[in-house]
């Protein structure tokens, strides 16, 4: 992983999460903006996935546990996709809240993934 990219990703996921939560509590059903924000979070995760695949070959291997990292990575990739799928089926404001919860969870997961990448005992 690349430090600055991870931090950008965490910031985007936090912003998207708060935005979706606010929209949801403002009684909005999932719309292009909230789904778009979630899609952006997912897109950055796909980029991160590629970065994590390529980094070891470029002399930047994970210092922490590799299996833990990949369990996080795969779970993270699934989460916004599942939330967005949910939001397309259940058109209620609570689906917007669900999008927000998923984005915030991604922020935490990327933070943990970055920790695992840079530090051997985490």
């Amino acid at each position: 992983m690349i430090d600055w990219f991870s931090y950008v990703q965490i910031a985007v996921a936090l912003l998207a999460g708060v935005f979706c939560l606010v929209s949801g509590f403002a009684r909005r059903a999932p719309n292009d903006y909230t789904l778009g924000a979630t899609a952006l979070v997912e897109l950055l995760l796909v980029v991160q996935f590629v970065v994590a695949l390529v980094s070891p070959a470029a002399g930047n291997p994970p210092k922490g546990d590799v299996l833990t990292f990949w369990v996080y990575m795969v779970s993270a990739l699934l989460l916004p996709a599942a939330a967005a799928f949910w939001a397309l089926i259940d058109r209620s404001r609570w689906s917007t809240v669900v999008l927000g919860v998923a984005c915030l969870a991604i922020a935490v997961m990327v933070f943990r993934m970055n920790e695992i990448w840079v530090s051997p005992n985490s």
Partner: peptide, 24 residues
Amino acid sequence: AGVGRVLVVVYAILALGAFGRSLV
């Protein structure tokens, strides 16, 4: 229905987290 669905999602995320950790 309603906010109960959010509860279910948070449960699912926690289940995923606990499952992943214990798998590792």
